[in-house]
Design a protein around this nucleic acid. Structure first.
Lengths: 411, 411
DNA sequence: AGACTTTTTCCGAGCCTCGTAAAAAATGGT
DNA sequence: ACCATTTTTTACGAGGCTCGGAAAAAGTCT
């Protein structure tokens, strides 16, 4: 059911537009805002000034400006101190926390290797709170006051329920259905989102692309196989749709055993443990308990590159599984460019031919077999940036809608 | 990139909201509009009166009203004559056209069996124009003037490009890439949409559900296997994403031959020709040229119900293919209730156990195996209603945005 | 016929955007 | 030093939209 709007809604929307523009450009001026957004000079100026008055933007003290003729422009930027957001990244055997200012700068970062496998929801929340306190202290804020965090995005391996703020299942924890969102929100007063790490990835491009790249997918190949999808300019998954589990799309009915308990998932061919299993001649229904190290994976790739044999076949089967998975998706959604990341992306040279062959064999008329592939090396950086963007977008939305009434503004 | 809005945008949006409400309720009043939309009495009344003035709504002459106390309400309805929309349905060996009034009533309907397999784009457009003229004549409009059609939605079996107005591929036509949208738009002056029939199906619920059913899927089982998906209250496919081809999602790599040229598609197990092929013991890579009649399918189902054997196995394999297809989708999108339609839906009793088993085996933790199934018997009625709703929504949008400036309205 | 009830219209206030005019703040030239 | 020029920003009035409350309209009930 559609709902009505009014003048207040117009203001809120146009504030959103202005904030969005500033996220993209970093530094702007009232005139530039007007030109970029299509708002009239008066409106752009009025909104910008209101945002400055609300301490969301600041006018830079221009020490170094270009000495052009005419009244110099007042350059505007997002005010770093306007809000603080945090990213919490939960993976097997570690929790990492990053604190960012409103303008997106990293203020502090802590990574702690710890055994979190047996934690229940309360303990996990306690551990996160401890790291949050630590990271806050690093910025000089006293433990009790100053520098409150207004938005937290938790990026976690595994399946989450973003609506409820719940970790449904994660390889990092033994227990299931851990409700972490609400308690975290209560303890900190922040608005909290609990998301799968891979499905966040497209957020890393949120303000980067110039609107060109409306559709693209991230594919993570590593311990598991994950995906983040952006279709028609909006993230696929989040509210309404929970995590997309690319790694657990069935590839071959009754096929190789997967960690998830099913048989024949993409991950059961393309996950690092699956590659190892296949290359070392282990049984296809053996589940490896231990993690394969990056060094071991590099070793495997080297073997496959140097000579024919099980290792090379393993990469070929993995590529085929990924290709079929992509082909199946391209049959639902139009083909889109793909960014590969994770340890498996280092072996893209071994995978690519099979991936493209898989797409050819599984999509109508082989369309999508020629989509653009690219590589993002640093998964961690990607997830942190993506999650930070997500958290910042939440604050932007709050700032856009919280319009200061004129009466109060007058004083 | 977000774009600005202004007062005009507010008006347009609120007109949209009012029209949407009238679509849902059929008959309403100014007061009821205010209550349902949240608009103030003044605004609701102002918008309603403007819509009446613009000849989009009419006040009913109340011959039979309930004799309550107080000033009687003026009941408002969509004005049937405000616009006319047409639906063109293209299937193997036939074209059907339906003309509807702005309030959604069917004015005329023509179905013509004809050999369209060898038509090129121009001939196809000519054939459509002829039928449109015929259907218009049936309503008493002269061939040249009166009763112009303002929106046409073409529902076609096969793959379309809704953005370009192109039929990419259809089982009804031998040629590919038929550009029909633009020439049809030029000849009629209408806004034209070219859509896959199955992907339109969710539009049939557009104004029906009370917002409850945000997510659901239609699965068509017949000559081919198709799907229409509604996720988070919006149709999946349309702009940005073209047709979703559920029938051609790969089920088994290297499996049975499909009409599309690939191997192992869902349709190659669940399409009527595939069922026939399997039940009659034909080779799995044989492609049947002829169509299987509904009577033959009923016969096949009867065989499967009465005794074990190839027919029963065929339905079981078909169900499994559909179930795996659904399970694969449920791994991307949360499980959602499913409406089955098409001749295959008549045999849902034979398919259902295998479908649910397929979902169990292919989705994580078997989730979605318990989604609600329902049946829609009359596929044709479904597609016509859906396409008409689609066309009407286009008119609504035009009426919402084409605000009459106050100055002109004054006269 | 007058009281009562319910729906609809009318009118002024408050926002918001827009276009234009005025103000502000610099540089350049004489 | 001073004034013209240039460019950015603010100020102001007009117009559109929604809102709330008052007034009008159009019936029924007694």
């Amino acid at each position: 059911m559609l709902s009505k709007t009014d003048a207040e809604g117009v203001r809120a929307h146009n504030r959103r537009v202005v904030l969005n523009h500033l996220r993209r450009t970093g530094i702007s001026t009232r005139r530039a805002i007007s030109e970029a957004t299509g708002l009239s000079m008066s409106s752009a100026s009025s909104i910008a000034s209101a945002l400055v008055r609300d301490s969301i933007l600041v006018e830079m003290q221009d020490n170094e400006r270009d000495f052009r003729r005419g009244r110099p422009e007042r350059r505007l930027v997002l005010r770093a101190e306007a809000a603080r957001v945090a990213v919490v990244k939960i993976a097997v055997g570690e929790i990492a926390v990053r604190l960012c200012s409103y303008d997106g700068q990293t203020l502090a970062h802590v990574r702690r290797e710890m055994s979190i496998a047996d934690l229940d929801a309360d303990r996990l929340v306690d551990a996160i709170l401890e790291l949050l306190a630590e990271v806050r202290a690093m910025t000089g804020a006293s433990p009790t006051e100053g520098g409150t965090i207004e938005s937290i995005t938790v990026a976690v391996q595994g399946k989450t329920d973003p609506g409820e703020g719940r970790i449904v299942w994660s390889p990092a924890m033994r227990l299931r259905d851990l409700l972490v969102g609400p308690p975290l929100a209560e303890a900190t007063g922040a608005l909290v989102a609990v998301c799968n790490d891979c499905s966040l990835m497209p957020e890393s491009f949120r303000w980067r692309s110039e609107g060109r790249l409306q559709n693209y997918a991230f594919v993570f190949i590593g311990f598991g196989v994950g995906m983040g999808l952006r279709v028609a300019g909006r993230n696929f998954g989040g509210q309404g749709v929970s995590t997309i589990e690319f790694g657990h799309i069935n590839h071959i009915p009754g096929g190789a055993a997967c960690r998830c308990g099913n048989r024949g998932c993409v991950e059961a061919y393309a996950g690092d443990y699956a590659l190892w299993r296949r290359a070392r001649g282990l049984e296809a229904n053996a589940i490896l308990a231990r993690r394969i190290s990056d060094a071991e994976m590099r070793q495997l790739a080297a073997e496959a590159r140097s000579s024919e044999g099980a290792a090379r076949e393993a990469f070929e089967e993995a590529g085929l599984a990924i290709g079929y998975g992509l082909g199946r998706i391209f049959t639902l959604i139009d083909p889109l460019p793909i960014v590969f990341t994770g340890s498996g992306a280092q072996a893209i040279d071994l995978l690519e031919p099979a991936i493209r062959r898989g797409i050819t064999e599984s999509s109508i008329a082989g369309q999508g077999a020629d989509v653009e592939f690219s590589i993002e090396d640093d998964v961690d950086a990607l997830v942190f940036e993506a999650a930070a963007n997500h958290a910042l977008a939440g604050i932007d939305e709050r700032f856009a809608t919280a319009t200061t009434p004129k009466a109060e503004a007058a004083e």
